[in-house]
Design a protein around this nucleic acid. Sequence first.
DNA 1: CTGAAAGCGCTTACAG
DNA 2: CTGAAAGCGCTTACAG
Lengths: 346, 346
Amino acid sequence: MDPLRDEARSRPTMREVAALADVSLKTVSRVVNDEPGVSDGLVERVRRAARTLDYQPNLTASSLRRNDGKSKTIGLLLENVANPFSGALHRAVEDVARARGVLVFAGSLDEDHVRERELATAFVSHRVDGLIVVPAGHDQSYLAMERKAGTPMVFVDRPPTLLDADAVLTANEDGARRAVSHLVDHGHRRIAYLGDFATISTAVERYAGYAAALDRAGITVDPAIVRHDLHTSEAARLALVEVLDVDDPPTAVFASQNLITIGAIRALRDRDLHGVVGLVGFDDILLADLLEPGLTLVVQDVAAMGVLAAELLFRRLDGDTALSVRHILETRLVTRGSGEIPGPYA
Amino acid sequence: MDPLRDEARSRPTMREVAALADVSLKTVSRVVNDEPGVSDGLVERVRRAARTLDYQPNLTASSLRRNDGKSKTIGLLLENVANPFSGALHRAVEDVARARGVLVFAGSLDEDHVRERELATAFVSHRVDGLIVVPAGHDQSYLAMERKAGTPMVFVDRPPTLLDADAVLTANEDGARRAVSHLVDHGHRRIAYLGDFATISTAVERYAGYAAALDRAGITVDPAIVRHDLHTSEAARLALVEVLDVDDPPTAVFASQNLITIGAIRALRDRDLHGVVGLVGFDDILLADLLEPGLTLVVQDVAAMGVLAAELLFRRLDGDTALSVRHILETRLVTRGSGEIPGPYA
DNA sequence: CTGAAAGCGCTTACAG
DNA sequence: CTGAAAGCGCTTACAG
């Protein structure tokens, strides 16, 4: 017989450890769970038997019977685990969860509300203890039953809709307004707007901030230099190239998201206008300081958002039943050059 | 009574669905699992009852009893979920897993072998069906029992040590050799090396490629311009600033990893030598094309590695018991300017 | 086609 | 201090 084709050896159970140590199942359970009231001799015998068999407790079985029913897992629904925003959020959540011995399921939604519901439901079927969600859709009522069953949920970056739950959000409108006012202060009055899908709440809020800043400066929004529904760098690049070709083109650009900012930079390069047309972007970008000119950006503290969300979730798991809360974090404008290029009214 | 403080409503069980539909537990199980041989009338009654109660099957309970014992989860051990390499790998694995209805646990190791063992053990206790590992340590023998229990494991980027398992690796030495030969071809003979922790196998292999390329060109490795154990951008920046200050300084630099490449760029800026000293880096970097000069890089197809690893894992889960395999993927040299700056011997 | 009994690996509730 | 019985929510193996 080929030894490689041998039937897989099955994992040792508590029952087998008990047999080897010649004690009852319950005694093994006590030792494994560090419960008090087992004589030193038995503890030693059980420990030895467990080590001999390389016993690993089955957490899914214990959680099934346990009174609290906790699985020691949480589910994290992200836009895309491969993008930097999601990665930073994920890491912050992981660190808080790790300190509590909790494992993290993560998944990508790609702005697809069907995928959101599928993944959230899958997490629920796996009996996660809680959910942290960057929602893709605008109806989370499908989670109502699970909420009533006591599963805590914290929404991040975007609020829940048709569901009562905690949220950790960014002051998007304020951040965008400051970004655009910054351009106005540097002498720009023709400022283009490049935005993500208008179905995304943060995109809507950032556009509102753009419009508010213009209004405050007595400038009318010109649809000819406003573009929504850009979701990739390439879409943003193409859009800005077009916008730069209109009569009376913009002297500055507000890019409402990191991929869009990257597309905007490429468009300015294409038209040889980098360092000439002003640019402020929303969201941090790696290497922003190494570009020429350096990128002026409105940044969020994503790690802080993740920590806050996770701590809130665990507080709920610990029994906090206060009314749902909504944390709103301020942004910071980091000036590096691209936003300080003087406009015609400087 | 405050309704918010009401006791949490417990989730409906299969037994409750059975009671409402007035059928046996087994009939509900058949309907939920789409087993054939239930009359249309009963299927309808059960479906209605399940919908009324918003019944969600408990996968952890079913996997406990199920013959195959599969949990429909896998564990993914990464260097750091927040870095781009890990994110791209994660996403590729997720996509393959999703197509099979499998959820992904992910976690960060931070190059810490203790953390590796803790996290791998935690995944095992949660009874994942398989493990995809970018190992931090150099001894995976602690997984031997789990391997014998039939849990498939695929190692990515770095091979397993003291454990027989599949691996998906990069041709690191070859990639580094080509990168350094490229600099030699452009007239450089004083080429600095900046490397990650010498405990990381990929760092060792890339250094070997550096040394081989110099050897092939008849150049002796000079320890004065070779720096190992750099793990952050800042460490790399400081190291290169020092190296640029030696007598007979390098005219080009090989940076063996993406954070190191970024640190190297900063150092060249600090000394006002960007565009003067040649630079080739290993690993892709976002915006590499937007820097000046553009970054010449040796890149790996990380998504392809992730897909390959996940497909291999699922093939094993489907019963493939062939000997362990080792896939080695080639790299690609992408020239954008920084590696084509002519050296003194051009 | 339908269901009653046993059991997955563990913890609970109780007895000695 | 130790253990035998029952049961978590399901699926299996079997009977009718």
